[in-house]
Simulated scan of single mutants.
Amino acid sequence: MNANGIKLGLAFYTTLFIIFLYGPLVVLAILSFQTGPEGGPQFPIIEWSTYWYKHLFGLTPPSRIAPLPIEEGLVRSLVLAVMTMIVSTVLGVTSAQAFRTHFKGSGVVFYLIVLGMMVPGVLVGLGMALVANAVGIDRHWWGTTFVLHVVYTYPFAFLVMLAIFNRFDPSVEEAAWSLGVTPARTFRKITFPLIFPGVLSAMLFSFTLSYDEFSRTLFASGRDLTLPLAIYGTFSVEVHPNVFAFGVLTTLFSFALLGTYAVLMSLSVRRARRVAVQEDV
């Protein structure tokens, strides 16, 4: 097969992948503009309307369709995701920093860290629930669920930072140390600005994985539901387009988060380049 054929094959595969990835989102967006309150998730659209978006914010008259129970779940998921992001990123950076120098048992420690992302979430959640019940610990989203989310997201942050440190030039730090700069100040003023793009990536991984986590949360959250559990609970009764409207808003939030990440990444890369130019001069 010649080069043109390979390019066409890759282009065709990429197009199918994009359709497969974003096709459900398009259908979700179309169904969210169904008329209400009687309109349901069906094609063709009976009448285009923003009724279900107004319904999310309580701007419609009372009807038989109850509002989505997402307010408290959304707050819990956001707080939990931020807590997980902070802890997992700090652990990922410090662990990857430690792995820059070989130490006895590093291979065992590496696989123990990575194991957290490999064990099925349902089994881990069930195991946490059984342990909590056995020792008399109440299950809460800010306790048992938080621990499970950190165990799950920490390996992702660790692997991201490990890849960043593998490409890091240690001579920059050695030059600072030779000038009498303390290791702590060297990390704060030199190392951290250079690895900040990787830190942003670790933060994004940890936040999104925690915000969307379902299986590990199912058994460990107790009576307080996070957003994925609250949405799942509405499916067992009846599906209405208000769920699709909320899905569209959540997708827009995700794109906004990615946009913020892209801006911060661009700024950090420019800063790192300026630092590199100053060192060359």
Rank of each mutant, 00 (worst) to 15 (best):
M1F: 06
N2P: 03
N4P: 00
I6N: 05
G9S: 00
L10V: 02
F12V: 04
Y13I: 08
Y13H: 03
L16A: 05
F17D: 01
F17P: 03
I18L: 15
I18Q: 01
I19F: 15
I19A: 15
G23T: 05
G23P: 04
P24S: 12
P24Q: 10
L28S: 14
I30S: 11
F33D: 02
Q34K: 03
G36Q: 08
G40I: 12
P41E: 00
P41S: 01
P44W: 00
P44L: 00
P44Q: 03
W48M: 00
W48Y: 13
Y53A: 08
L56S: 11
G58K: 06
P61N: 10
S63F: 07
S63E: 05
P67M: 04
L68I: 14
L74Y: 12
V75N: 04
V75R: 13
R76F: 08
R76V: 14
L78E: 00
L78D: 00
V79P: 00
T84N: 01
I86V: 12
T89E: 03
T94D: 02
A98F: 11
T101I: 06
F103D: 02
K104V: 05
S106V: 03
S106G: 03
G107Q: 07
V109M: 14
V109D: 04
V109K: 07
F110M: 07
L112R: 00
L115I: 10
P120R: 07
P120M: 09
G121N: 06
G121E: 09
G121I: 03
L123W: 05
L123H: 01
G127C: 00
G127Q: 01
A132F: 06
A132I: 01
V135G: 02
G136Q: 02
W142F: 15
T144W: 14
T145Y: 13
F146N: 08
F146A: 13
L148C: 13
L148P: 01
H149N: 09
Y154S: 05
F156T: 11
F158A: 02
V160I: 15
M161Q: 13
L162N: 12
F165M: 13
N166K: 12
F168P: 12
S171F: 06
V172F: 14
V172L: 15
L179P: 06
A184F: 04
T186N: 10
R188L: 10
I190A: 11
I190E: 13
F192E: 02
F192Q: 08
P197W: 07
G198T: 06
G198R: 09
V199S: 11
V199A: 12
L200A: 08
M203K: 04
L204D: 10
S210V: 01
S215D: 09
T217C: 05
L218V: 03
F219M: 04
R223T: 14
L225H: 10
L225Y: 12
T226Q: 13
L227D: 14
G233V: 07
F235E: 11
S236K: 15
V237R: 15
E238P: 04
V239R: 06
F246S: 07
V248A: 08
V248L: 03
L249D: 09
T250C: 02
S254Y: 10
A256C: 11
L258N: 11
G259E: 01
G259F: 10
T260F: 07
A262F: 12
V263S: 06
V263P: 09
L267S: 10
R271G: 12
R273P: 01
A276L: 15
A276M: 11
Q278R: 15
E279K: 15
D280Y: 13
V281S: 09
